[in-house]
């Protein structure tokens, strides 16, 4: 399967799960909103150009926005994490050249600790920015803190489950 097809299907699947599963389950509390769709952006290949990464993230976020009928909010958060991802990857990568030899960020290609740092930081940034934009329209400071904390916790749990269920074996790319 070509990379493009794989990632498009992944995007579609994440979007449908986010809209028709995670946003359909009755909320436990107003603070607990599970998000997993942005894992698609974290899983994009290393060699995606930085501008392209942001454009893909923007379109992807906007697609979710139109489902939830609040255009702009998720797109803004997605562009934010797409912009920050290359910096973090450069900081965290284990050895020289892992970017070239592996396809995409995963436990395999980056190692447990750096990959989890990447995921935790990007999740936190995504939720902070998202709830901050919500907070500008309404809500209080405690709403902001509580929602960022609780949603990040739930999302990380979901990501952990996803990583365990769908173990991605990243191919080691040789020069061929």
């Amino acid at each position: 399967m070509s990379d493009f097809l794989k990632h498009s299907m992944r995007a579609l699947l994440f979007l449908l799960v986010q809209v028709f599963v995670l946003h359909k389950i009755p909320p436990l509390h107003q603070f607990v909103v599970p998000y997993i769709y942005f894992l698609f952006i974290i899983w994009l290949p290393f060699n995606t150009g930085r501008t392209w990464l942001m454009i893909i993230a923007f379109i992807y976020g906007l697609a979710l926005d139109y489902f939830l009928m609040w255009p702009g909010i998720h797109a803004a958060a997605c562009v934010m994490i797409a912009y920050l991802r290359p910096f973090l990857v450069n900081l965290l990568i284990r050895q020289e050249g892992a970017e070239q030899s592996y396809g995409a960020p995963s436990i395999n290609s980056m190692g447990w600790a750096p990959y989890s740092v990447l995921v935790v930081v990007l999740t936190l940034v995504h939720h902070t920015y998202l709830v901050f934009l919500e907070w500008l329209s309404f809500g209080s400071f405690w709403y902001f803190l509580g929602k960022v904390g609780a949603s990040t916790g739930v999302s990380l749990l979901l990501i952990l489950v996803t990583e365990m269920l769908f173990y991605r074996k990243e191919k080691f790319r040789t020069n061929m």
């Binding site: 501008t51 454009i55 906007l62 702009g72 803004a76 562009v79 934010m80």
Partner: peptide, 22 residues
């Protein structure tokens, strides 16, 4: 600064959607 500028442009676009929509 092409990356940073495109980041700012996309953010501006998204935020304009958000605040015009409300």
């Amino acid at each position: 600064y092409f990356n940073f500028l495109s980041f700012l442009a996309l953010q501006a676009l998204a935020l304009s959607f958000l605040f015009r929509y409300n």
